[in-house]
């Protein structure tokens, strides 16, 4: 079965979605990400979607679900790189990406996650082992 690769960079996991999502792939991604957050103690998940030509309610639900599970595991989800036409359509569709932070591109998305990581390094962090950059 196809799998979407997940990269680890410091305390963050990075996923870039380059293919048309279908049911099994969405489920596999959610499972793989969840397992990897638990294994690595990652505090942030960056999902890059600039290759996605549409975000329908199916993909929206997948993103919301990944964010919800990640949050329970103490990781924050940032969706980066949404195409402008997709953003316009998403609003008209009525889809709200509840619990998801969005960023214009990967660079800004990583900055959001890094900000959270360094906040915690300044003394608000948990006692979890983390990989430093």
């Amino acid at each position: 079965m196809d799998r979407i690769p997940i990269l680890k960079l410091g305390g963050a996991l990075i996923v870039t979605i380059q293919v048309d999502m279908h049911d099994r792939l969405a489920l596999a991604l959610e499972e793989d990400l969840t397992a990897m957050i638990a294994r690595t103690g990652a505090r942030g998940v960056l999902i890059e979607i600039s290759a996605l030509e549409i975000v329908d309610s199916f993909i929206g639900r997948m993103l919301v679900s990944i964010a919800a599970v990640s949050r329970v595991l103490d990781a924050e989800t940032v969706v980066a790189g949404m195409r402008p036409a997709v953003a316009i359509t998403l609003v008209e569709l009525g889809l709200e990406l509840t619990g998801i932070k969005t960023a214009l591109n990967v660079e800004r998305g990583m900055a959001l996650i890094q900000a959270r990581l360094s906040d915690e390094d300044d003394g608000h962090g948990s006692d979890r082992d983390r990989h430093e950059d």
């Binding site: 199916f58 036409a85 997709v86």
Partner: peptide
């Protein structure tokens, strides 16, 4: 245009599902 394409493709995706 690109935005209209995206709208009709998204609508089609919702209805197909």
């Amino acid at each position: 245009g690109l935005v209209d394409q995206t709208k009709i493709v998204t609508a089609a995706s919702e209805l197909a599902r």
